[in-house]
């Protein structure tokens, strides 16, 4: 009897731990290997002295971040600065990111570029950087400005695209080219502002369309496959799909292909290499590219500007573009340059 109880207790602990882990893992991104490396030292002798920038992002697990990393190193070499590009294992590992910022402050970097994993939790770390007179530049992700101000902290600028305007590009294209749309929206994770902006940015351009479904597929490819299959089951006449990230766009395409549906125009966000292939194959109508490499380059330039004593606008906007079959090759050529 006693043994039984003991075992039961162990099981309960096990389940509790398991569920804690589920919460820990639930996120759009994933887990990633942490690695740090620097560049810029070799080749070009530094013009800008020995400026060292800590570039801290949320993860390195998807193409968005790896392209940003490549862009950061390319820009660092060009501008003759040293960049240390780092990220926690997964996008949800906020505490690890806080530690990275704190370590960067202690190590005495000249500037910190940060893509905050959480809009509030990073505030104290930013304040620490402020107190050490290290300028902080945000890239891709914003933080809670009120909370930052309340703690007396500040950031120099936020570098990134305007999510709403970027999604608008795809919406406008759809509105121009497809009349009588019956649209299915694949939403992201509720509460994530960037993803919500992408949804409304598209939706506001196609107000004449019938919305047959608006469902989340949690930014996951397999989930999107299932959701798309279910939506098509009820609404086989869907002719437009807007997925707010590339993974969901890809899942939708697979479901559409398997079901042999024709004339469904899929649009998504991120311009992953799968997306580019799909545009070539004709299964994807368009994808919004947000040029993470350009964001990286702009952020590094902002660091240099701040170090030179300039004051920056609160939002330094970078360009986004809709990639369709018409400009696919140009975009590819541009991205290939990064790999050289």
């Amino acid at each position: 009897m006693k043994i039984m109880k003991n075992r039961q207790l162990k099981k309960i602990t096990a389940i509790l731990m398991a569920s804690a882990m589920v919460f820990g893992l639930t996120a759009c991104g994933g887990s990633g290997g942490e690695s740090t490396s620097s560049t810029g030292g070799e080749g070009s002798d530094s013009k800008s002295g020995d400026i060292k920038i800590a570039y801290i992002v949320k993860a390195k697990t998807d193409e968005f971040w790896t392209t940003m990393e490549k862009g950061a190193y390319a820009a660092a070499e060009e501008k003759g600065v040293t960049v240390e590009f780092q990220a926690p294992e997964k996008e949800t590992d906020v505490e690890k990111q806080v530690q990275m910022v704190e370590n960067a402050v202690v190590k005495g970097f000249d500037a910190i570029i940060l893509s905050a994993a959480d809009s509030k939790s990073l505030v104290p770390a930013i304040v620490k950087a402020n107190n050490a007179n290290i300028p902080v530049i945000l890239v891709n992700d914003t933080i809670d400005e009120e909370a930052l101000e309340a703690d007396g902290g500040k950031v120099e600028t936020y570098v990134g695209i305007n999510q709403y305007d970027a999604a608008k590009l795809a919406g406008e294209y759809a509105a121009e080219n497809i009349a009588d749309g019956k649209v299915c929206y694949l939403e992201g994770i509720s509460g994530v502002k960037a993803l919500e902006d992408r949804l409304t940015g598209f939706r506001d351009q196609v107000e004449g369309y019938d919305i047959v479904a608006s469902q989340t597929a949690k930014c996951d490819r397999n989930e999107a496959f299932n959701v798309m299959q279910n939506v098509l089951q009820k609404n086989p006449d869907v002719n437009v799909v807007w997925a707010v990230n590339a993974e969901m766009g890809q899942g939708a395409i697979q479901a559409i292909q398997q079901g042999n549906y024709e004339d469904i125009q899929v649009f998504d966000f991120d311009a992953s290499s799968d997306d580019l292939q799909a545009i070539e194959d004709g299964t994807l109508a368009g994808t919004v590219a947000q040029y993470p490499n350009l964001q990286a380059e702009t952020a590094i330039q902002c660091c240099l500007d701040v170090i030179n004593g300039e004051t920056l606008e609160a939002h330094t906007e970078t360009a986004a573009q809709l990639i369709t079959k018409d400009n696919l090759e140009e975009y590819r050529a541009e991205m290939e340059k990064l790999d050289e």
């Binding site: 994933g30 887990s31 290997g33 993860a59 390195k60 697990t61 998807d62 790896t66 294992e89």
Partner: peptide, 9 residues
């Protein structure tokens, strides 16, 4: 898995 593939699909 992450070490082998990094962020790539």
């Amino acid at each position: 898995a992450l070490t082998l593939a990094g962020g790539e699909t």
